[in-house]
Design a protein around this nucleic acid. Structure first.
Lengths: 358, 358
DNA sequence: CTGAAAGCGCTTACAG
DNA sequence: CTGAAAGCGCTTACAG
């Protein structure tokens, strides 16, 4: 009563061209129904007469009315926000994933709130719990490696927050998972190098704390095995998914009296480290040493020579994760939630020059 | 009345360990004051007796009470969300900027909602207006090039949304700006190459639609001028900040009968293009051609040889942008809002081998 | 199929 | 310095 209706266009001149937003009451009045009926239309309730619904919808779209997400959230006891919690150090990965999630959220009225975090920091779990509870998130999306943190997931379940986990294997119920099958990617890398005729093949894996490290390595071994090859223990090193660890492990391999003729690195980042140490030690790529990366990040095609790498459709994965989050089981099957990586062949791999060192 | 108070710890066993969140009413009751007084404490009103304030604060922190941002937002007619609107194609830039803004927002209770966009898409401005109005954002942070879009800024002013623009020059009132002085970075690049003894120096600029393109180029010319040099028209090409345009422009320069001995590229991305074309055409870096980039993105130190580049403290800029957004003029001067880029010398620059081609 | 009342958890005037 | 009332813009029971 203090504030007159904002809808009487007559006093629009007041305050320049600033139009106050319409509320559900304005729409109700114009449509000559109760606000509750407008609410029913907004929320797509079935209990509205076709005719009424059309009339209300017409007025809503005519006036570009959008319900206030804060008010709705307050009444629903749930916000229209989706959180993305991540600790992935690769900016390209993060940006692609964000974009994919936004793709999947488009048109839903949900907004994306980002939350990078450090799993090793002391208040980690409590901070996240505060965040999720305070914001009453509609859902949370977690790429690796936070997706692999069972304590975090347990916390989300405890506070009743829906979530979707993106990981290389199925860690949860299918409708809470997007599976990336990194193993298959590793397998392709192994087959590719075997088919080129390499036999002295090395691997630099990611850190043990990442599931993907094990999956990629395991798949690689499978791929070699399918061609009767094995990964020799002295040719299997553990890196950290970093450039520096690629350098270090690469040096260990290439400094040997009997170096490998091909290296599969757990990600592209480490492949760039191998490139540099190879150059330093006078190995030509792919002449003396073939290299295969993983991720197919943008640097892959910019390296010299362009890097053969295993690609995962990150953005699409993000999109599907968002769809999965809001998928209603009554609407049938959830969206395809499994992805297969595939090898992008460039110019860092070639048959070994000399067949065997002896 | 329908719902009993949630505070009587006695029936906590109901529903397992799930504790419903306390509300302002619970705190008021425990502190034996009205909810309005609790509200005053939350909002740091001066009109609360010291003793009362301490009592209320004690209870708040004892119970980890956090006011509901949705309810507060509804009453305030403003959400506790900050938007970051951007169209920057560089993932490293975006991630660093996001992180910086989050740094600046830490502890304020504000959350960051991201909004990548395409300035060329048709509904661009209307979409953003809908977003800002619907969410009643507390503020918006804009890095280049959206920060240079006066139509967007006019829209934000019209809907009364606070904002901070990050740009290479002062486009707005100081308290709405974070200035990056790209010009000074260009100048350093020019001086560096001149001091090494180069005279045949080329530049590949960014697209004309980016302010930074002009600033970096202008500063570069200034830097050369301070050593009595000029940028010859045939050595000044316009690229697009992309890898491909770096290749194309690099080829144009190096294919000449009288190629330059040094190239300053408007960003690192284009420098990688120049690297590859140089390799293809048989130029060694820095032996035959020196290269200086801009941004000092992570690839810079991973290239071979590591790229000399001009660094801008992106993350810190994001942090300061957030602080600036919420800076109260009554609290004195706004945080330092001007940044100076500086040159990071690596191994892609050296004195020219032969003094002059003749 | 539709609506009047009460409520979500806060804050803004308005009193005192 | 403190509080009772009304309101922010929606939705949930509850009636009919």
């Amino acid at each position: 009563m203090k504030q007159k209706s904002k809808l009487t266009g007559t006093d629009d001149q007041t305050g320049g061209d600033f139009k106050p937003r319409l509320t559900i009451n304005d729409i109700a009045r114009m449509a000559e129904v109760s606000k509750k009926t407008v609410s029913r239309v907004i929320n797509k309730s079935r209990f509205v007469k076709e005719e009424t619904r059309l009339r209300v919808e017409a007025i809503i779209s005519e006036h570009d009315y959008e319900p206030d997400p804060q008010a709705r959230g307050l009444a629903f006891r749930r916000s229209f926000l989706v959180g993305m919690i991540y600790d992935n150090p690769n900016p390209q990965y993060v940006v692609n994933m964000q974009q994919g999630v936004l793709d999947g959220l488009a048109g839903t009225g949900m907004e994306l709130v980002i939350r990078p975090c450090d799993r090793k920091s002391p208040g980690y779990l409590d901070d996240l719990r505060g965040f999720v509870e305070r914001q009453k998130l509609s859902g949370v999306i977690m790429p690796p490696s936070v997706s692999e943190d069972e304590a975090l997931v347990a916390m989300l379940r405890r506070v009743d927050c829906p979530y979707v986990r993106i990981a290389s294997i199925g860690l949860d119920k299918p409708d809470r998972m997007v599976i990336t099958h990194d193993r298959k990617g590793g397998e392709q890398a192994g087959k590719h190098l075997a088919e080129l005729g390499h036999t002295r093949i090395a691997h630099i894996s990611g850190p043990a704390s990442f599931l993907s490290s094990h999956e990629r390595r395991g798949g690689f071994i499978d791929g070699l095995a399918s061609h009767g090859l094995t990964l020799a223990p002295e040719f299997s090193l553990q890196g950290e998914y970093t450039y520096a660890s690629g350098m270090t492990c690469g040096r260990l391999l290439l400094d040997r009296v009997d170096p490998p003729t091909a290296i599969f690195t757990g990600n592209d980042e480490m492949a760039t480290g191998v490139y540099n140490i190879a150059r330093e030690l006078g190995f030509s790529i792919p002449g003396d040493i073939s290299v295969v990366g993983f991720d197919d990040s943008p640097v892959a095609e910019r390296m010299w020579p362009p890097l053969t790498s295993v690609r995962l459709p990150i953005r699409e994965m993000g999109r599907v994760a968002a769809l999965t989050l809001f998928h209603d089981p009554l609407d049938g099957d959830p969206p395809a939630h499994a992805f297969a990586p595939h090898l992008i062949q460039r110019h860092s791999t070639a048959p070994p020059v000399k067949i065997g060192p002896s």
